[in-house]
Amino acid sequence: MKNSKSSSSKLNGKVILLLAAAFCVAAAVLNICLGASGMSLPKLWEALISGPGTSAASRILWYVRLPRTVATLLSGAALAVSGAVIQKVLSNQLASPHIIGVNSGAGLAVAVCTAAGLYSAWTIAGFAFAGALGATFLVVAIGKRIGASRTTVVLSGVAVNACLSAITEGISTMVPDAALANADFRVGGFSSVNQSRLLPSAILIIAAIIIICTLSNDLEVLSLGDDTAQSLGLKVTRTRNFVLTLAALLAGTSVMIAGVLGFVGLIVPHIARRMIGNSSGYMLPFCALLGAGFVAVCDLAARMLFSPYELPTGILLSAIGGPFFVWLLLKRKEKRTA
């Protein structure tokens, strides 16, 4: 079966994966070099090897640009993979952590956390994960209860999203200190990346992505439908709950780093599917790399477009994501009527 066509498609997958990695590195380097204070490549190299604190350039690199870039990469990879997993599990390409309320669940939990005066990185990570997890399983449970057509699940997610966002706004209105502390969370952006949160986030995100990538076969079998999946020997409920938990962990951790960033989990899996195919074994790692590079580029654009003013990245993503979502709906209509 390892015929020429199959191995050439594998080669294509590897080539595309390498290209995505190159895109990711280029986006990261640009994000580090460009800004109010420009940094040439030799200067960047010098600042990198000299370590933090010896010159203005190295301080900018180590305390501002590098943490910010790492945050964009981690957050982008996490949201893209989370979106790809949620779309597979719900068999709906319109689903994403933002649209079905997973991000809002994490956002609400962070609002509760800050309102209670809890600011430790691990506590916020725990709350964000719990919020994302709660929202995910709430949407799945509602979908199951009302008969779960593929559209119904997304609609129930939209309703959950609206409710959770409303509660978050309510908390922010009633607890002004919390509102101040989580203002960045609600819009989503990287202007005030908390360095202490990067290490726990990196550990959680990288571990979750590696585990999910090893389960890409299980995810595909799951997307064939419950009866088929079970008849192929998959423990359907256990697998679904496990991968959704990992997807929620990724979305929640991303919220902890950058707040509620919309549409990454919708846009990136779509682009990835078009480039590499839905059933490729490379789909999930490709999504991770593409998502990381995509958010790094968006963050760069948000900083540079209206310089010296900086746009929160979440606003830019919503501006791109809204029309993209409408385009997707139109495409689905075309497909139905074709």
Partner: peptide, 27 residues
């Protein structure tokens, strides 16, 4: 089964899933 959702998947990849019961971890 009597009916099932038609996945966005290649024929060969679909048939490969017939081997899922024989795969260990990692797959």
């Amino acid at each position: 089964p009597q009916s099932r959702q038609v996945g966005d998947i290649e024929v060969q990849r679909m048939v490969m899933h017939g081997r899922f019961p024989y795969l260990g971890y990692p797959r």
